[in-house]
Simulated assay, not measured.
Amino acid sequence: MAKQISELKLGILGGGQLGRMLIQEAINYNLTTLVLDPDPDAPCKHIANKFECGSITDFDTVYNFGKKADIITIEIEKVNIEALEALEKEGKLVFPQSRVIRLIQDKGVQKQFFKENDIPTAPFQLVSSKNDLSNGNFSFPYILKQRKDGYDGKGVMKINNLADVDHAFESPSLIEELIDFDKEIAVIVARNANGDMKTFPMVEMEFNAEANLVEFLISPSTYPEDLQDKADKIALNIASALNITGILAVEMFVTRDGDILVNELAPRPHNSGHQTIEGNYVSQFEQHLRAIFNLPLGDTRSINNAIMINLLGEKGHDGLARYENLEKVMGIDGVYIHLYGKKYTKPFRKMGHVTIVDQNREKAIEKARYVQHTLKVVS
C-alpha cells in the first residue's frame, strides 16, 4: 500500500521565505519537513521539523541531506545539480527534476530551449566575455545578462554605449534586444507526475527600477481575454515541453504591439504568486505540494481582486529590522501581512509582503498604494 503524504519526509533545499511559506502549507498535511540552508538564522529554522545548516551547493552536503528525505524540492535554483542527479539515480524523487534545474540555472541554455521549442522570446546572442562585446557589432542599447547566478535583479545590466561595455560582466553572458514593452506579466503553471496541468490567472507586475525587483503585483489581469489565453497557452506549452513536475513561474513581456515574449522561468514558488495565499482558492505553495506528491491539483481561480506589495528594506537602513506604521496598515480591511522572520534588514532586502484584497479593484489598488507608501522596513 502506497504511503500517505503525512508519512513522507519532504526535503527542501533553501530555507528562505519561499521555504517558510511552503512549510506553512505543509503543516496542514502533517508533512515532516527537512530544510538545508547555509544561514544559521534562515527564516525556516524555527518551523521546519529538522533544520540543517550547510551549503546547498556542496555535493556531499546536498547528497547526504537528500538521503534523509523521500521527496526533495528547492526554493532557489542555485543548488548542487550533480548531487541531485546521484540521488535520482538511487531512486529518490527530486521535483523539479535535476535536468529542469540544470536548464534553468543557465540563462543561455534556457534561451536556446525557447528557440528550439518555438517559444516567443526576445532576439538574443551568447557571448563568452566582455571582449566579445568590444569586438562585436551589436546595436545599442541592449540588455546584458549573466548566464549563471543572477537572481532578484542581480546579474542584469543595460548597455547603452561603448563606455558601458567597460563595466560589463566578465563571465559568460547573453545579450538581448531591448524590448519596448507595455507591461511585465506572469503566469504560474503546475504540473503533477500524471501530466495534469493547471494555470493560475495571469498577473501584472511593476518593478522597482533601482533594485529590479517586483514591487507591486495586480491579480487578476484586465488585459483582453485573448491575450490572457495566449499567455496561458505559452505557460502550458513550456511546462509540457519541460515535462516538469511542480510549479513553474513564467515571466513575460507584453509588447507595445500586443505580442507576448517570454523573459525567464522559475521552477519553484515565485514572487509573482504570493497573492494566491489570500486571493485564490488554492495557493501556489499548496499547489506545489499537490504537484510534487502527485495529488489532484487545486482550484486556481481568483476569489477576489488581490494586490501584492513586496516589503523591501529601506535605503540607508542596515541593522535590526523595525516595521514602521505596521499598526496603521493593519487597521485597514482586507490587508494581510506576511513577515519573513528575518532579523536584520538592509537596502532592498525582501523582508515580507502584504496582500490587499477587495471586491472593488480600484479600492484594492488605492489601499495598496497607501500601504506601499506607509509601511516601511527600517533599522
Rank of each mutant, 00 (worst) to 15 (best):
N208M: 09
I238K: 01
L227K: 12
D226S: 15
K233I: 14
L242A: 00
I218P: 05
F216I: 07
L174S: 09
P201H: 07
V250Q: 02
D196M: 11
S219T: 04
L213M: 15
A190E: 09
P224I: 01
A186N: 05
P201K: 10
K233M: 11
G195H: 05
A249C: 10
I218W: 02
V189C: 09
S219A: 15
E225W: 09
T245F: 01
T222L: 11
A209M: 13
E215N: 13
Q228S: 10
F181E: 00
D232W: 12
A239M: 04
A249M: 05
A190T: 10
G246C: 00
T222P: 00
K230N: 13
E215A: 14
F181Q: 04
D229Q: 15
V203A: 11
E176H: 05
M197T: 10
I188V: 14
L248I: 01
A239S: 12
I238E: 00
A235Q: 03
A186G: 06
M252I: 07
E204C: 06
D196K: 12
G195K: 01
G246Q: 00
N237K: 13
A239P: 03
I179E: 03
L213C: 13
L236H: 06
F200L: 10
F200K: 09
T222M: 10
D226Q: 13
K230P: 08
S240Q: 14
D229H: 13
E176R: 04
E184Q: 10
K230R: 12
M252W: 09
I238G: 02
F216H: 12
A249T: 02
L213G: 12
N243W: 00
L242W: 00
K198S: 13
N194A: 15
E215P: 07
L227G: 01
I238F: 00
F200A: 11
L174M: 11
L227M: 14
L248N: 02
T222S: 09
E204A: 08
A235R: 00
K233W: 08
A186D: 05
K183D: 08
L248H: 01
G195V: 03
L174I: 11
D196N: 12
V189K: 01
P220K: 02
A186P: 06
N237G: 05
L178T: 13
I218S: 03
S173E: 01
V203H: 06
V214W: 12
M252F: 09
E210R: 12
S173Q: 03
N237Q: 12
L217F: 04
A239K: 02
